[in-house]
Each structure stands twice: as structure tokens, then as C-alpha cells.
């Protein structure tokens, strides 16, 4: 475990809590893309199937359970989740690897409906932009984590993860710029 990865995972977890806090505070999910939330749900379900096949560490298992559980409560896709689990559960180990790759690719683009929604309306409230920043920060730090692990360990992260992770972080680039130049100075998130 290195500091980049730990902070990245905590940002990822934090992003979900920010989203829940926002829905509670404003009692509304306006400005949050349902498509993105549904895609993220699919991302978690297809990737963390490995919960049943391999054990890495308690940290790893607990975090995967957190992401699955919180995401389920978040968008109330319990029924869809159960159906997906039922469909995929009987599959063998190799299928899990294929689904893992699918999940990685899907995650890279899952934020796009949300970003498109913000491009269309040209603005987002501050809590929503904190949420997206936490997600983007998690992805960006994972890249640093991979570089760190490349030099500190004799194994390397999968090339699928590298390519998709860099594409995904790239999608956040414009958002990061607006976030740093406007939101952190207390202004609204508004596209120029």
C-alpha cells in the first residue's frame, strides 16, 4: 500500500459520501446524471465479482463491499443488481476476467453523461462539482500509484487498466481546470 493509492481510494469513497450528502441536503438529484449512476453500478458489479473467487487482503475485500453496497443504496438499483448477480454468478473464473476488463473500459466512459449534462446546462452546484472532483482525483492518483508500484515492485499493472485509466483521467482535464480556477475560489461551477 502506498500513499497515492490510499488517498485515491479514500477520494473514491469520499465521492460517494459527497453525492449522498448532496441528495440529502438539497432533497433533489437535479444535475446528477442518472445514466452515469447506472453505468457506475454496472462498473462495480462486473468488476467486484472477484469477491467470490480471490482474496487479496481485508482492506481490499472491505472496500469492494463498501463500493457495491453504497452504490446500490445510492440509486436504488437493487432489483437490477440482483438480476445481474443472478445472471453472472454461475460463470467461471475466465468470465470474471473478461467482465473485469469490461468494467475497466466502462468506468473510463461512465462519467461522460454527467460531463455532457454539465456542458449542456453550463453549470453545476458546488457539491456536485466536489463529487466529480473526488472521482477525478481518485483516477489521477491511481496513475501515480501505478508509476510508484512499477518501480517499487517487480510486477506491473495490467495494460488495460493503464490505457483506460489515462483516457478516463483525460476526460476530467477540462473539468479540473474549471474546478481549480472557479470552484476553489468560492465561485459557482460555470463553463466559460
Amino acid at each position: 500500500m502506498n500513499v497515492f493509492r490510499l488517498v485515491a481510494d479514500l477520494l473514491h469513497l469520499g465521492s460517494i459520501f459527497i453525492l449522498i450528502a448532496r441528495i440529502h441536503q438539497t432533497r433533489s438529484c437535479a444535475g446528477i446524471s442518472l445514466k452515469t449512476q447506472a453505468l457506475y453500478f454496472l462498473v462495480f458489479v462486473t468488476r467486484y465479482l472477484d469477491l467470490f473467487t480471490s482474496f487479496v487482503s481485508i482492506y481490499n475485500t472491505l472496500m469492494k463491499l463498501f463500493f457495491l453496497a453504497l452504490d446500490t443504496f445510492r440509486v436504488e438499483y437493487v432489483l437490477v443488481g440482483a438480476a445481474l448477480f443472478a445472471l453472472v454468478f454461475p460463470h467461471k473464473y475466465k468470465v470474471v476476467e473478461i467482465l473485469w476488463s469490461f468494467s475497466i473500459y466502462l468506468e473510463a466512459v461512465a462519467i461522460m453523461p454527467q460531463l455532457f449534462m454539465m456542458t449542456r446546462t453550463g453549470e453545476a452546484d458546488n457539491i456536485t462539482s466536489h463529487y466529480i472532483f473526488a472521482l477525478g482525483g481518485y483516477r489521477a492518483l491511481y496513475i501515480v500509484n501505478w508509476i510508484y508500484r512499477y518501480y517499487s515492485e517487480d510486477k506491473y499493472s495490467d495494460y488495460i487498466a493503464w490505457v483506460a485509466g489515462i483516457v478516463q483521467t483525460g476526460l476530467y482535464a477540462d473539468f479540473f481546470y474549471v474546478y481549480f480556477t472557479r470552484v476553489l475560489k468560492g465561485k459557482e461551477f460555470k463553463l466559460p
Binding site: 493509492r5 481510494d9 472477484d50 487479496v56 499493472s157 495490467d158
Partner: peptide, 10 residues
């Protein structure tokens, strides 16, 4: 150098 198993990260 080998690829790390995919289940290690989140």
C-alpha cells in the same frame, strides 16, 4: 516482469 493479478486494486 509479470502482470499483477487484476483483483489487487479497486
Amino acid at each position: 516482469r509479470q502482470a499483477r493479478q487484476t483483483h489487487d486494486e479497486l
